[in-house]
Write a protein that binds this DNA or RNA. Sequence first.
DNA 1: GTGAAAGCGCTAACAC
DNA 2: GTGTTAGCGCTTTCAC
Lengths: 359, 359
Amino acid sequence: MSDTSKSDRSATDAKLTAGQARKSTIGDVAALAGVSKSAVSFVFNNRPGVSAQARERILGAAAQLRWKPNARARALSRRSSQTVGLVIRRAPELLSTDPFFPQFVAGVEMGLASHGYALLLQVVADATSEQSAYARFADEGRVEGVFLTDMRVDDPRPALLESLGLIAVGVAPQSESGAAHTIGANDGDGIRRAVHHLAALGHRRIGHVTGADGYVHSALRRRAWENSLAELGLPPGPVASAAFTGISGARATHELLDLADAPTAIIYGNDLMAIAGMTVATDRGLRVPDDLSVIGFDDIPLAPFISPPLTTVRQDVPAWGRAAAEMLVALVEDKELPGIDLPAAEFVVRASTSTPGRA
Amino acid sequence: MSDTSKSDRSATDAKLTAGQARKSTIGDVAALAGVSKSAVSFVFNNRPGVSAQARERILGAAAQLRWKPNARARALSRRSSQTVGLVIRRAPELLSTDPFFPQFVAGVEMGLASHGYALLLQVVADATSEQSAYARFADEGRVEGVFLTDMRVDDPRPALLESLGLIAVGVAPQSESGAAHTIGANDGDGIRRAVHHLAALGHRRIGHVTGADGYVHSALRRRAWENSLAELGLPPGPVASAAFTGISGARATHELLDLADAPTAIIYGNDLMAIAGMTVATDRGLRVPDDLSVIGFDDIPLAPFISPPLTTVRQDVPAWGRAAAEMLVALVEDKELPGIDLPAAEFVVRASTSTPGRA
DNA sequence: GTGAAAGCGCTAACAC
DNA sequence: GTGTTAGCGCTTTCAC
């Protein structure tokens, strides 16, 4: 079928397309509607300058030929691909663990959909591939802007993107990111409420199991825990560092419970660690919550269905995704930034917390 | 800055780019290297017909100008965007639940990376948006092919994609999908091993909690459970239908345990339901595994860290993603299909199963 | 209001 | 081998 001679290829003859031989183009639509290509273009770009009846005919012709503007040609001509990128660096073992990523992506899509933007995704394993992924996105002109998630302390990416000339929206607690534009509610709020909740129940030794080192949100959650204790006049609690994984959470829990002055409550950097921690405590003969209160972070779908149901902090991650998308599109199109109003973290009290030593 | 007159824009003068005023193009590289554009093009497309020294100079010039072929222009000219699409339809509440999606995407990226393809993602909520997402992908020429996941019984999508002229690779158990090309190991194997494991332990009343209706993998898991019982000469066990969610798993568990002849073991359609089921059993005063053995499906990261650790079936989902990507690229480029060899499901025995009535 | 024509940056024939 | 040239399908001035 590729042997078709070139000569008849150039004819922009609407009748040709009846044969379904090739995809119809703007020229076919114009011919069928009896107008020029620019008229068709104007109609499909919501531009004035086309009479109502011409418009009708054009729309009719396009529908008849099942024609939509070709994204590739459009991208070249407009010098914009109407696409934004998301590069996810994640250790393989954390990939299916993390409730953040799918929710964020779903939110992003909601924000993008109304603007006709598409999302180009790239998953990488290490920092080097991450950098080159951004570089490729930029140099090849595949995307107009990118999201920056999993912000790290002293993250090198804002500078990299700056130098690549890529527009970026960071997802991180307010102005902790180094990125020019950032969205994200403060994780600390939720932790603060968790500490207050425990204190109100009568706990005085409240420990913390941190998330993976180097991430802005790990650091922030830890700081919020520390500050909240201080603000309540409670002694600094014991801390054990972990990495958002089940195994690290279990190990950290042992560490805290081995202490001479073991905490009566532990706040974990995420739900996965909290649940692993509950299992550890139970295995050590402690009852949860009677002997040990446990609080997680994320409110994963499983949290209400374990035993005991997990007290935790919930954030509206899809809303973040949506907001980030709206912001990125606004930046890319050089429009006014939308007012962003993110819902605060919710603190969800379930059965894994109670007054200490209730037995 | 848009007032720059056109005339000087057309000059393909390499010196111009020194000013960083605009991104360099193939013309700039050609000029700097003292060759023609086609020579540059040939080099960057690994084509013969360029002398070694010209090649050197071209590569040098490109590096100096920090130039890479523009993906937009390339896509138009080649009539291929080097992009494939993935449309995910997922009820919001199942979004962060599902271990499949992130792992699959990670695998896809591995398969795509070596071919220089990118992944365009779209998350939709319902069937209508799903259809139009595919239609947009096709009509706008954004992607060369798509993946078909979450295959449903009598799935209308293969026919839709056929009519759209989009190449597709389905992810589903062998030849259950209706799609021309399919990858995916048989979920049934894992279930079969689960049933045999329970039978060997001495269970005779083995129940099943199904996944959401209408999905090929839900149906297949159920059928494998039925067939395995029959092949072992065991009586057909009780079944309760659920929907992969915690709440539905809990309800289904109650349903089965309320039976006069309640099962001594239950195989669940996924881990989330299995864990919710264990909690239900425990709350009803049963001990797991002594009074009730429980088997899940997926081996989520949490599975080893709950109490008791969950016996379950693990599949190598990233490997599926990778294989699907290799296959799709081969189809798109009209090359020979790669030989695909997917690892079989692994059956992971932990502490949630034991001999019945061990007490 | 409408149409002609010149790009967008690259690829790929086809001469030289 | 190397360079010239004609597109790819759309957008966008600029005359009419």
